[in-house]
Amino acid sequence: MSEERPFAIDLGRLKTREKPSDAASLRAADERAAGLGFVEREPQGKRGRKPSPRTDQVHAKVLPPIATEIAAEARRRGVVQGVLIEEMWQLYKDKSGI
C-alpha cells in the first residue's frame, strides 16, 4: 500500500490546555456524573481479614487486650497464633471431658 501521507500534522499546533484535576473538581464532576447514572463500576477489593495461609480460615476475633497477649506469646515462641488456639482448645477439651 502507498506510504504517501494523505495529510501531514504540524506538531507545533498540537497544544495542550489546562484542565482541572484537583480532588474537589473531580469530586464535583463525579457527583454530577452519578446523577446521570455514570457511577463507580469497578470491582471492589475484598474487604476484611485475609484467610490464614496455614488453615485457609479467617481467625475468630477476640478483645484487643487478649489479642495483644496472644500475639506476644506467639511471637515469643515463634509460632503462629493458631497454634496457641489449638493448644487452648485441647486444654479446654481435656478440662471439659469432650
Binding site: T16, S25, L26, A29, D30, F38, R41
Partner: peptide, 15 residues
C-alpha cells in the same frame, strides 16, 4: 461501553 465514573473522569481531561 458503559456509563461509569471512569468515563466521566476521562471526559474531565479531554480536549
Amino acid at each position: 461501553g458503559v456509563a461509569s465514573r471512569l468515563v466521566s473522569r476521562a471526559i474531565s481531561q479531554a480536549d
